[in-house]
Each structure stands twice: as C-alpha cells, then as structure tokens.
Design a protein around this nucleic acid. Sequence first.
DNA 1: CATTTAAAGACTTATTGTATCCATAATATC
DNA 2: GATATTATGGATACAATAAGTCTTTAAATG
Lengths: 132, 132
Amino acid sequence: MRFTKATNYALHTMLMLVDASPVKPVGVQQLAESQGVSPTYLSKILTRLVKAGMIESISGANGGYRLSRKRDDITFLDIIHAIEGTASLFECNFVHGDECLIQAVMKEAEEKMESHLKNTKLADLAQRETKV
Amino acid sequence: MRFTKATNYALHTMLMLVDASPVKPVGVQQLAESQGVSPTYLSKILTRLVKAGMIESISGANGGYRLSRKRDDITFLDIIHAIEGTASLFECNFVHGDECLIQAVMKEAEEKMESHLKNTKLADLAQRETKV
DNA sequence: CATTTAAAGACTTATTGTATCCATAATATC
DNA sequence: GATATTATGGATACAATAAGTCTTTAAATG
Ligand code: SF4
Ligand code: SF4
C-alpha cells in the first residue's frame, strides 16, 4: 500500500508545468531529464493526465505539454486519481450490505485523506519550488 | 495503491476475536474457514499481530489465538500498521530538505486518514457484526 | 519533404502480494 | 512420558502489478 512512482513523476511534472509558460509547451525530454526518468515512460504517464483533461499535448517540432485548465482548478486529488485510478483503497470481495461497519470505517478514513488532497490546489505550491 | 487482502483478513479476524471469549482461544482453522482463506496463510498473518503484541497465541491442543490487550486499546490503525508496515505512503528517493512542499501535502493527507483510523477502536464495532 | 515530437501498443523485467508445503517447536491431555 | 494438537518458520511457487523499454504511427514545423 504505497503510492506508485508514476504518481510521484506526475506530481513533479505538474508542478513544473504550473511554473512554466501557459502558452509555450515543455518537451517531455526536458521534463524527464530533470527527474531522472526515461522520456518514453514519462510520456506514457503524461498521456493519462492528458486524457484526464488536465494538460494538453502538442505534437511536432517545439511541441510538448502545457496546462489546459486554470491552474487554480487542479488539485492533488485530480492528479492522483488520474494516475492511480479512483477505486476504493479497501476492496472486499463480499458485499454484506450497507450495514458493514468495517467498510464504513475504511471508507471514512479514505475520505479524510481525499478531502485534504482535494482542498490542496497545485497553485498553492507554485513558484515556491523550482528545483526538481 | 490498495490495502492488501492480508489487512482484510486481519481486520476480520480481530473483529471475531473481540467478540470471542477473552480466555478461551480460537483456533486458526475456525477463523480461516469462516473467511474462506487457508489456515496456514492466515496463521502467517496472525503471527504478525502476535509480534505486534495485540493478540497472543497458545500452542497445543485447544490452542489458538485470543486478545492480549484490552479490547478498547486496539485501533484500526494498530492492525493496519502491523500488517502493512508503518512506512509513509508517499516515498521519494531524494531528500530536498524540510521545505519540500509535495511531501508535506502528502504527509498531511496521510495523517488525516491515520488519525481517523487511530480514533476508531475495534471495540466500537464489536458485537454488532457476528457474521463472517 | 525532412525533422521534431507526442501517442500507442507490444513487450520485457522487477517487485510485491498471495498462497502452499513441510519440518519444527510448543503445549495439553491422557 | 507418549501422543495428539496447534502455532511458527523457512523454502518455494504462482499471480498480479509496477516499472520500464522498444518500435511504429501520427501530427506539427519549417
Ligand atoms: S463484513 Fe464488510 S468488509 Fe467484511 S466481508 Fe462483509 S462486506 Fe466485506
Ligand atoms: S521536491 Fe520533495 S518530493 Fe520532490 S524529489 Fe524533492 S524531496 Fe522528493
């Protein structure tokens, strides 16, 4: 039970894009190099963010990635959900009705975490962390 | 990023033990059968709970497992930590000092979840859920 | 058209989760 | 003390997921 490295890469990349120009896209090569990850792999990750509608990609020369939404709209939870999926952290094969207390407790706990991630917008940290 | 099945088994087993006699131990065979898991595997999981000091095991005929602590002392977080470990959910290879905001946000989110799991004691659900 | 750059899919490798098997140790009961 | 019962530990096997590579295709630039 850990966040994947892909989530780590996605968060760092998004932070860079928030700090970058909203017009001129940043190439995946540059984004990958600063994180020590291969460009092709990072590209695969970023494609999921594109499909989630958070960033947009521009093919061709001088292409790359840039934000598609207002930076204030993007929360940590958005990014994490785009990468890790939205499935519940605690899954149980059986379904013993709504009265299941174990699931209730676990769900509540998860919601506490998600609530915090939802209330923290990417813009909150922008321009304060330029390295890596 | 999901809780493991082992955590699921551990939670259900603990709930049974809370409802069971605090003196007479319950055999792993019985505990395993009601959850549809093999006794040997469940035993391996329960050994971790023993080492965490939450339950104690009695070898020999009529042996098994029973609570070692007061039931009111045992929280969801205790069980989860015993199984999943206590490592942070968001790990980063680098260490860019305390000013790292990404880690700060992720850590806070995790703490929100843990706080809820810590405040929910096993005894809160006891004797209300006897099936499975 | 030639070059640059992202997208997509097939594929490989590494890591972790899930589970079984067996030998050993501990305990209760007779 | 002998025997049956029960948990423990190690080795091992299998499955699922994470992590990463490679190659080809598509789009944009100039
Ligand atoms: S009691 Fe709840 S968590 Fe447990 S098996 Fe039933 S539905 Fe699942
Ligand atoms: S900025 Fe924070 S999360 Fe990112 S690499 Fe540095 S320490 Fe890790």
